[in-house]
Computed example of a mutant assay.
Amino acid sequence: MNLQEHYNELYKKSSETILAGNYKLDSQINNESDSRFGITFLIRPSEIIKANIQSFLNELKAIEPNQYYYPDSDIHITLMSIISCSDEFSLNAINVHEYIDLIQQSLVILDKIKIEFRGVTASPSAIMIQGFPTDDSLNNFRDKLREDFKKSSLQQSIDTRYAISTAHSTVLRFQEKLENPQKLMQVLEKYRDYDFGEFQVENLELVYNDWYQREKNTIHLAEFRI
């Protein structure tokens, strides 16, 4: 996949949808009884990059204060959704140590991952920071995880929703009617190719999480240094 083309196409379609008023509101964000949980293998961006993201979000907050903005603690890149969030899944249904062991076996092929955050894109319901791995290490590792999980008997739902191939971070979700979609799009255009920074991944995290990766609902299962 050409990531730039993918992000461009997503932005083009979604910006038209937003301006036409056909964007989607997330009705579950403030639902305290939302019981959708899963297992995610993820990457956290550097502190410098998160600071740059928050500066961008502050501009959006001035225009659209009633939307859902991700705090630093929740910003992430999904390396692999191992068990998709569902109200049918609970942590006691699996042996976490078996998952940790399998991931450690897969890690033998991984040397390093470096990711550049450049520009923003959108979906009909969210705003994302565009992530670009600087080489094939991330996708090669994903393929290794797919292969190893497929060979195992462990519960997993890898690629059942979609085959992950991007390195974006969702940073805003629409939860209320937009007050000024035109101004929102003007800010997005300003940041369309903005350099948020580049970082080398040092840690990978395995977590039990809710749909929004909120820290208060997250249980950290393991950390892997690379």
Results as ranks from 00 to 15, higher is better:
V108K: 15
D193S: 13
D143S: 12
K61E: 10
M185L: 15
T160E: 14
I77L: 13
P133Y: 02
F89M: 06
I158G: 01
V96G: 01
Y99K: 08
S73I: 12
D136L: 06
R118W: 05
Y99G: 06
R142Q: 13
L154P: 00
I115S: 07
S152E: 08
E59T: 07
N58R: 12
Q130Y: 01
H76M: 05
S86W: 12
Y70L: 07
F117S: 01
M80C: 11
S157D: 04
R118D: 00
E64V: 03
G197R: 06
I164V: 13
K112V: 10
D74T: 10
I164P: 00
M80Y: 06
L138R: 08
P181V: 02
F56L: 06
A163H: 09
S137Q: 13
A126V: 02
R192F: 02
K190N: 12
S84I: 12
D111L: 04
I83M: 08
K183G: 00
L110N: 03
S123Q: 08
V187A: 05
L79R: 00
A163S: 14
I158Q: 02
M185Y: 07
N66P: 04
L188V: 07
F56N: 03
S90C: 10
T134V: 15
L138S: 05
C85N: 13
I75T: 10
R173A: 05
S123F: 11
I164D: 10
N139E: 13
L102P: 00
N66G: 13
I75D: 00
P181C: 00
H97Q: 15
Q155W: 03
R142K: 15
G131T: 11
L91K: 04
D148C: 01
L57Y: 07
L145T: 02
E189G: 07
D101E: 12
Y69P: 05
F132S: 12
R142A: 09
Y191V: 06
D148F: 02
I158R: 03
R192A: 11
E147C: 11
T166E: 14
I127S: 01
V171P: 04
R161G: 07
S81W: 00
V96A: 06
L110T: 07
G197W: 08
V120Q: 04
I94Y: 10
L145H: 06
D135F: 07
K150P: 04
Q130M: 15
S165F: 14
P124D: 10
T166M: 09
F89K: 11
L145V: 08
N140P: 03
S169G: 03
V108W: 06
I82E: 10
N66R: 12
M80W: 00
G119N: 04
Y194S: 10
N58V: 08
N180H: 10
E147K: 15
E88P: 00
N140I: 08
S81E: 11
Y69F: 15
I164L: 15
P181E: 09
D136S: 13
R142W: 09
N58T: 12
G197V: 08
H97R: 12
D72K: 13
T166K: 08
E98V: 03
L178Y: 02
L110A: 07
K61V: 10
I100P: 01
E88I: 04
D135H: 08
L102D: 02
